[in-house]
Nucleic acid binder design. Sequence first.
DNA 1: AATGAACTTGACATTCATTTTCAATATTGT
DNA 2: ACAATATTGAAAATGAATGTCAAGTTCATT
Lengths: 143, 143
Amino acid sequence: MTKSEVYFQKYCRRAGLKRSGQRDKVFNMFLKTEQHISAFRLFEKIRKQGEKIGYSTVYRTLRLLVKAGLAQTLTFGGETHFEHKFKHKHHDYFICSKCGKTIEFTSPTIERIQNRLAKKYNFTPQKHTLLIYGLCINCQNKQ
Amino acid sequence: MTKSEVYFQKYCRRAGLKRSGQRDKVFNMFLKTEQHISAFRLFEKIRKQGEKIGYSTVYRTLRLLVKAGLAQTLTFGGETHFEHKFKHKHHDYFICSKCGKTIEFTSPTIERIQNRLAKKYNFTPQKHTLLIYGLCINCQNKQ
DNA sequence: AATGAACTTGACATTCATTTTCAATATTGT
DNA sequence: ACAATATTGAAAATGAATGTCAAGTTCATT
Ligand SMILES: [Mn+2]
Ligand SMILES: [Mn+2]
Ligand SMILES: [Zn+2]
Ligand SMILES: [Zn+2]
């Protein structure tokens, strides 16, 4: 049992939820997926393994993971993407407008300035997304 | 005729579009609106003036404004918001998760670091959105 | 092992923002 | 005025996300 698993099972128990194979399937596939993923692609990924799963269950479980603090969402390209939050460090994104490729980066200085400005504006930050759209090196060259 | 108007009319002409009263209505209301606005609220705003306008026309024109470089979009709260781009300086956002209030801010240092990192990752930035979600001062106090 | 209250599941329906369709109407160059 | 082409908006279509509910499952208690 990884720390995430322990954490999740504890969370479910406290929330009065019962154990279920379907929920575990979604949770496990999410754990295996290091990159951010949309609900639909996670659904596909589980189905392709030959597992039986409903779309609603995937959505529901992903929402639960967010509520439990294990996942967080970022929206781009008209879709919600889920990414790890538990034991994963925060990052911002470059997103290629042409091919959709994403590049993660972090800048402690940017984070620091954000917090300083939040204080200045009497704003209590909870989460943020910095998405920089443009062209990745491949798409720059191919015209 | 403001610079924006001249620019827009020139753009339309070059694109082989005909002049139209409906398009002008949307364009003018967008110009009058300093804050970012959703397609639906812009639609309402025009209707409330007693003007006759279709939803599709509002959407179409807003998309055209983006294509012409006069407007740009930012997505949050499950809606696309349109904001000025022409002759308006860029800014990032604090967004209150509770009441939806937005606070604009700018940080030249953040912008500079973004560009430096883009170079480092061989990425050509075109636009970006930095959205910081949290609680505004009012919503912090009210529980 | 049986019970039953409460939770889970997934096919299907619904909602909501956005886009597309298309027939009627308007604009523009000649 | 004419014809070619663009515009309009009501209605339909799309697509992501959420809600519904009857049938199935879990689990604490007996
Ligand atoms: Mn960040
Ligand atoms: Mn910025
Ligand atoms: Zn690319
Ligand atoms: Zn607020």
